[in-house]
Design a protein around this nucleic acid. Structure first.
Lengths: 219, 219
DNA sequence: TAAAAATTCGGTATTTATACTGATTTTTAT
DNA sequence: ATAAAAATCAGTATAAATACCGAATTTTTA
């Protein structure tokens, strides 16, 4: 029932982009025992990945969303556009779950944790190769929590440029007046942005604001 | 020049405590090629580790500082006390560097990143086994930055139980009066803890306090 | 056991943040 | 080109946080 890859090969060719040698070695070990999977190449930077894809496109790419030179979500949009047939599985740590929605929106077909079991990793590769979408159980569980608005209210507020700037200054131990001086604005304007921030983030003071911003990776 | 282990074996016996299968497999792969190193056991929880050590103590333990059931720093003090000859190398992610000082204080003999190169890992094991102390280059670099007070002012403030509680409530979107009601305290007392927190953390408002607390893994 | 640290509470004054209403100009998107 | 969103600033009022002062009691540590 599985589609044949464009290369005509009988194997699922896999590439890995991750800057952690241990992760790559671990994955290499996992994949080496599989008759239907062939590890094509490994990359440890986004730049190397982009260069390599120009030469050879694998069937499935395991992509660390935190490469040293660029984040996965920034890479993904371009990759999907350029290589329609490439199936990307995001690879991440427990703590980066907030990226799940973004990555899926941008075209990732799978989402694995670096703590995933071997069997899960192999399943994911085969399912995604076959056209499916695979989320690690822990991820899908978390997604449901988020969707249900349990504690993160289910959405990531979109902050404007100025709001982000003000937020940075607030977190950097500055008062409204100080921020006004730094940004060459009236204190009123700064307070206005503060109000918007509190409203959008659904909190009532800057302590909770900063905490939530960090949780949502906005800071 | 290397000391012989207590077991009389010609190998350096190594145990790993880490809950990530990929990390364990990666390390297993790295160690398997070494004639002088024998991987004794692997554990994936703190509890399993404690139980296992009662039976058999390795020469060197690679200890993930973020096991699912307990943190490394909580484990370490007890382990070092009970097994004087056991050399512990902390194993962690880039983001957990704040623990370095604590781990060294509590008796860790080495500090490796999960992103460390194979050669570095092997070096660390041999050096620590021989009685030395080994820090990953990235770690020692960071330690110096911290020591120089570049931006984290060189120390991790020790918060008291009550201060931590108040800090949690502050970050949870509560005012002093609300916290007082929740904790059955006078608002004065809560404010007193607030003052101590700001003083210890060297900030002047709760926004910066929360940010710093999260950076220092206190929250 | 003695000393040190933590926890508790009070008063007072000042600064800062937050809430609300309202409005103009600039930028962005359709 | 037009509509929508963002950015700017103002007034006023209240709530909250912060900065000092000091001090008694309890707990922890040496």
């Amino acid at each position: 029932m599985r589609k044949q890859p464009d290369t005509g090969s009988a194997f699922i060719s896999v590439a890995i982009a991750d800057d952690h040698p241990l992760v790559i070695n671990g994955l290499r070990h996992v994949l080496s025992g599989q008759a239907d999977i062939a590890l094509q190449t490994t990359y440890n930077t986004g730049k190397a990945l982009m260069t390599g894809l120009e030469q050879d496109v694998p069937d499935v790419l395991l992509l660390d969303i935190m490469l040293p030179d660029i984040t996965g979500d920034e890479l993904l949009a371009g990759i999907i556009t350029m290589y329609h047939d490439l199936k990307v599985i995001a690879l991440t740590n427990q703590s980066d779950l907030y990226y799940v929605e973004t990555m899926l929106e941008r075209g990732a077909r799978g989402y694995l944790l670096k703590t995933s079991e071997e069997a899960v990793i192999l399943d994911a590769i085969r399912i995604v190769y076959g056209g499916g979408i695979y989320l690690d159980a822990n991820v899908s569980e978390r997604l449901q929590q988020v969707a249900a608005g349990n504690h993160l209210s289910g959405f990531i507020p979109i902050l404007t440029r100025r709001e982000k700037e003000v937020l940075e200054h607030i977190a950097a131990n500055h008062t409204s007046q100080e921020i006004a001086d730094i940004m060459f604005l009236s204190k009123r304007t700064v307070d206005s942005h503060r109000q918007s921030l509190l409203l959008k983030m659904q909190v009532k003071n800057v302590a909770a604001l900063v905490k939530k911003a960090i949780e949502l990776k906005l800071l």
